[in-house]
Nucleic acid binder design. Structure first.
Length: 273
DNA sequence: CGGGGTTCCTGGCCGC
DNA sequence: TGCGGCCAGGAACCCC
């Protein structure tokens, strides 16, 4: 399930292959999630950025002009991007592909079809709700303990649920949210946090995301980087997926329960309310 | 507008 | 071995 570290790993890998390449013919699966692939046809890639879990591919009519469109890619749970020779074996769940002007092909495959594509005018994110209201990038200076505390205070929902909502900070999913809360020793089900807790959580959010990027992402089942390799961060998890095992800090057995329809794992002792 | 619930999908896994 | 049932999970979407 690609979260910020996985999406950033993908971005770094495909950028050199895609930069300055023109997208020629496009093919797409008939779902409306993927048919916008055709809207990018004819444009040249002049850069690839990331906001939270979204990839923003800057498109221009030509190499020497300002970009006027963005191809926005969300990988969902099982989305995978690769730039390969056309002779490479076709993925089983191909959802979109673009012929490139260097004879290679950009392919987007996605087993569960939770991913989606859109082409919009540069900077116009108004039709993509989560992106339009996305919180600060975790490594940006706009993300501070106080911004985090304020964001959490602005809603009455459970802390973990708010973090998954992408408003307090961009890019957390279930894995890194559980990891950050565990490290910060904050209970996932509280509805507000003190500034002291916000300071800890601010630090641990940055730590777990940085560690995830440094390890090339977390591969639990499907995630592969564009070059087909697994990440290594799954060997470094302290909390996510460790329900029933001993907490690495206090040896209490980690618990798991569904919080607002999402599986949540935490230490009932160090993360007590 | 916020909160709460539902839906989209399919492979993998469990139990019989 | 086969199969029904269930689960995971991000974000759009719908209703109140």
């Amino acid at each position: 399930m690609p979260e910020l570290p996985e999406v950033e790993t993908v971005r770094r890998q495909i950028e050199p292959d895609l930069n300055a390449r023109r997208l020629l013919d496009a093919w797409s699966h008939p779902s409306e999630k993927f048919t916008p692939a055709h809207d990018a046809t004819g444009a040249v890639v002049v850069g690839i950025r990331r906001r939270g879990k979204f990839l923003l591919v800057d498109l221009a009519r030509d190499l020497d002009v300002e970009p006027d469109q963005e191809l926005i890619i969300h990988l969902g749970m099982t989305g995978h991007l690769e730039v390969v020779q056309p002779s490479a074996p076709e993925p089983t769940h191909l959802r979109a592909s673009w012929q490139l002007d260097d004879s290679r092909v950009l392919r987007f495959s996605d087993v569960r079809r939770f991913g989606r594509l859109r082409v919009v005018e540069s900077g116009d994110h108004s039709t993509i709700p989560t992106l339009a209201r996305l919180g600060p990038e975790p490594f940006d200076e706009a993300f501070t303990p106080e911004s985090l505390r304020l964001a959490i205070a602005s809603s009455s929902r459970h802390l973990k649920t708010q973090l998954l909502g992408q408003r307090p900070v961009a890019g957390l999913g279930n894995i890194y949210a559980d990891e950050a809360l565990w490290r910060a020793e904050v209970n996932p089900a509280v509805r507000s946090i003190t500034l002291t807790q916000a300071r800890r959580l601010h630090t641990t959010i940055r730590e777990v995301l940085r560690q995830g990027i440094d390890n090339g992402g977390t591969t639990l089942r499907d995630y592969r980087s564009p070059d087909g390799r697994e990440g290594a961060n799954q060997h470094r998890l302290d909390c996510y997926g460790r329900s029933g095992q001993a907490c690495g800090r206090c040896s209490t057995v980690l618990e798991s329960r569904t919080l607002d329809q999402r599986t949540t794992t935490w230490c009932p002792s160090c993360q007590a309310r």
